[in-house]
Simulated assay, not measured.
Amino acid sequence: MDSKLLYELLEAINDKKSVILYNWENGQQTVCPLKIYCSTRTGRQYLLGYSYDENKLLFNRLNRIKCIKVKERENNYEHYLQLAQKAAPHIWGVSLFGAGELERISFTVEVASDEQFIVQRLEREKRSGTVQQLDAEHYRFSITVYDARELLPWIRTFIGRITAFSCSNKAVQKLFFDDLEQMASYYREAEADEKQ
């Protein structure tokens, strides 16, 4: 089903036509389809389109769409495509949570001289953003995105190396430090149990 749907959406994108999306929960939405994204983590496919109903860019997961109805050619297609291209460097996953308010997030990792694979990993996995060498053993990753929460699972893979973390969205920053404290409390409890 997803393959047929994907084909129809790609045809609509190629022909610059708008579509009506009918989802499995009996809802519908009219969009100008712009680009297909595929999650490298889950393999799920998403449609990035301009929603006429909400007047903004939105993602729709393909396996939640039952069928589509292709409509007429979209005269403003190039304008919507430019909006998507302008947004692309600030999309980490498939969330446009703030959709207008960008959130800045950065963290610094400690890297020993014989651990350049950590720096290479930062460069390889960063998608966008920048990696800056601060001194012989510290590198900072910085990025502005629509939804900083989406980076947390990736950032957590550097736990133990992170020496600084900040986010302009204070709720995300609090979540990061709360998670660290919760993890530390688990270790303290486990250590206390071992001593008993």
Rank of each mutant, 00 (worst) to 15 (best):
F165G: 04
L102M: 09
N23D: 14
N169T: 05
T144C: 10
A192Q: 14
I159R: 15
S18F: 00
K17I: 06
Y146W: 09
S168N: 04
T157C: 07
F59M: 10
E25Y: 08
S39M: 06
E101D: 13
E194H: 05
E8T: 10
L102F: 11
L83N: 03
N60A: 11
Y37N: 12
F177H: 13
T42M: 00
N60F: 12
E191P: 00
Q182K: 13
K71F: 05
T108D: 05
T108C: 10
Q133N: 11
A184D: 11
R156K: 15
F176Q: 01
A184H: 13
L47K: 09
K35T: 06
D135V: 05
L102Y: 10
E125C: 08
Q133L: 11
Q196Y: 13
H90R: 03
T30S: 10
L58E: 06
E123N: 12
K56T: 08
E103R: 10
Q29N: 14
L47N: 09
N76P: 09
Y22L: 03
P153F: 01
P89H: 06
L134F: 13
A190C: 05
F158K: 08
A164L: 06
G27C: 07
V111S: 00
K69V: 13
Y50P: 05
A136G: 00
Q120S: 15
A148C: 06
C67D: 12
G93F: 00
V111N: 03
L57E: 04
Q196I: 10
E74D: 11
Y80H: 11
Q132N: 12
C32I: 13
V70S: 08
K126W: 02
E25S: 13
V111M: 03
L6E: 14
R64T: 11
A84P: 02
L102D: 07
L62S: 09
N26I: 03
V131Y: 07
F158C: 13
F117C: 01
R121Q: 14
E54V: 07
E123L: 15
Y7E: 15
D178V: 08
T157S: 15
T144A: 14
R104F: 00
D178K: 08
F97C: 15
F177N: 05
R161N: 14
F117R: 09
E110Y: 15
L83P: 04
Q45Y: 09
Y77D: 02
N23G: 01
F158H: 11
F59W: 07
E54T: 14
R104D: 08
S185P: 04
Y146E: 03
G49H: 02
G27F: 11
A84D: 06
E194V: 06
I65N: 01
I105Y: 03
R44T: 06
Q173H: 08
Y77I: 07
G129C: 00
V31D: 07
L58Q: 14
H90Y: 15
R124W: 05
A12I: 06
E150I: 00
M1Q: 12
S113W: 02
L6W: 03
E74C: 02
F141K: 02
F97E: 14
F158Y: 15
R161I: 09
D114Y: 08
L10Y: 05
S3Q: 15
Y52G: 02
L180G: 12
D135T: 04
W92G: 02
K126I: 02
F158R: 07
E125S: 13
L122M: 10
V31W: 00
L57S: 05
N63A: 04
A84F: 03
S142Y: 04
